[in-house]
Design a protein around this nucleic acid. Sequence first.
DNA 1: CTCAAAATGAGTTGCGTACCTCAAAAGACC
DNA 2: GGTCTTTTGAGGTACGCAACTCATTTTGAG
Lengths: 347, 347
Amino acid sequence: MAETLTPTALTLKDIAREAGVSLATVDRVLHNRPGVRPDTVRRVKEAIARNSFQPHVAAAELARGRARRFAFVMPSGPNPFMQQIEDYLGEMSGWLSARRLSVETVATDVFDPLVLAASLEGLSGDYDGVAVVALDHPGVRAAINDLVDAGTKVVTLVSDVPSSRRHHYVGIDNIAAGRTAGALVGRLVGQRSGKVAIVAGSQGLRDHAERIFGFNQVIATEFPDLSVLPVLEGRDEDDRSEQLLARLLGRHADIVGLYNVGAGTQGVAKALSEAGRDKQVVFVGHDVTALTRRLLLQGVMDAAISQNPGHEARAAVRVLLALARGEPILREQEKIRIDIVMRDNLP
Amino acid sequence: MAETLTPTALTLKDIAREAGVSLATVDRVLHNRPGVRPDTVRRVKEAIARNSFQPHVAAAELARGRARRFAFVMPSGPNPFMQQIEDYLGEMSGWLSARRLSVETVATDVFDPLVLAASLEGLSGDYDGVAVVALDHPGVRAAINDLVDAGTKVVTLVSDVPSSRRHHYVGIDNIAAGRTAGALVGRLVGQRSGKVAIVAGSQGLRDHAERIFGFNQVIATEFPDLSVLPVLEGRDEDDRSEQLLARLLGRHADIVGLYNVGAGTQGVAKALSEAGRDKQVVFVGHDVTALTRRLLLQGVMDAAISQNPGHEARAAVRVLLALARGEPILREQEKIRIDIVMRDNLP
DNA sequence: CTCAAAATGAGTTGCGTACCTCAAAAGACC
DNA sequence: GGTCTTTTGAGGTACGCAACTCATTTTGAG
């Protein structure tokens, strides 16, 4: 009828007795300090495992004295999505200070690999953990690895550097996101056949390229009545996106779908509206911002693929904290999901 | 360039000095203990606010000695969604024991208000917090209020009792979920006109009724080419759902959409397949289980409206813990979102 | 003004761990 | 067997707060 999940509550003292050693030795084993014979280490670890002992987090945290410091390395430009992440970090301030944690944001030009790498190197030694919106580049990779080697916990945020030895990635699978966008456009277009336009920031950005890849994959294999037009590179700028799209709409009367991969949403929407085709064209984009929220409510946008910035901010902090404490990570909890947001499930 | 979110780290001693009182008095104020003049209370609270002091969670937790006990009151039947919630609670066991928290699940017949109320009354005094999958009934409401009055923190889970004085509800807005389902069916049906079928467990269940309400609302106002057939009450049973739906499909050749509000998914899918109409009818249901996952991959189901059971389990625990500690709740974090799950964003 | 009640100060203990020192024991090496 | 190094034990202090006791001061009612 009633099942308890937490049976025992042993302490280090109990483990010491169990293993037939002193508290000091258990402490040495627990913190990988030198000066313990391998055989003794084994005995202690066995005692810990046998009793499934877990150190009391609160006691450990209290005893260590100095506060943990984390740094968030974020893009310096005016990116609304990144701004949301910072806002949500700010909302955590009470939570953070009650745990004596310090989170600092460091703005830098994440699109310049050398500048980013230099910023990362500059953090070494000062922080227990670093979350970074990273560009996938050899210099950045090396900087991340250096941090890791220095004992700093590193988490990549939003954009991954899979070839580095970062401890964790907090963000979505962008290929799957592109696939989802493709499925949505295809399904929402319905019976109609015609062309599909793609507006991206740049195909050089890893996340954009991956999204486009996934999108094309789905359209090509599952919606034979649709053909994808060459990608417009709007550089995430409103004006440029608008001009490029307006020209394209003028040339193709049979555009039935539109996928906006990155930012520049304002310009994309304007081009659609001014051509008077915002109701006929299925428009799928990314992220829930004040703007996309409005466009969804107006029916100009049909769906937004979203990664929850609040979740990403909190997950990054929690993962860094768990890594620093040596606690296991709740993978299921920290996994960022690909949200499909339509008008009626707007968060 | 770098902005710190956590400036100070005062202690109770500092607050005592600031307020010109002793540690004991600060302690009395902090824990609402009697024997402090109103004026002194004010002074202490002002000092706390002025310095935005927050007690060190770890120290408080360590000092209080006894572990906190939480109970989860769950349906006793073989409900896969509830099972998932329990599974995720089990996955937290390491996290829980490291914090010396105990979570016990109590199985009971949540559909019988008297039995449920009795179960709740029986918990009084033994637990610091209770999460309950509750039926909205006067007897249950009274039982919840009694728990609250006894100082127990109460959270309703999945299904709310808004008229009670429960401290928090962890679950989705079911009207919005129904609206989302309606929008999906309507959009995915495309240009076609025809009829839409609804299979529910029972219209007596609050969550099902709300979902149907939201669904009808959207179809009626936004998809005039679709007409909704009377609700089939399958009692969440496979066989019954299958029979009812098979009969309905036989009578109406122009069914283009299907909304399965609750369980019984196996039967619903079978009726569709055996009628050879699983590809023509847009089928939207709820929750991601092994079964719905398979149906989505096969293309039988087109979308599932989902509430993340892992998130609900963890949110309930976190909310109970925050309430017990007197910490603020991170509303954004604990809010359960309505997930639209299609084949390409299957979690 | 008196006296009891209320309010406050001062202090202690303990929670479980981290981190440190110093001494003692055990082992390794020649 | 003696010397040196490695390993281990024993113990202490500190972390910030909860919870408690007891003495002292202040307050208010009569």
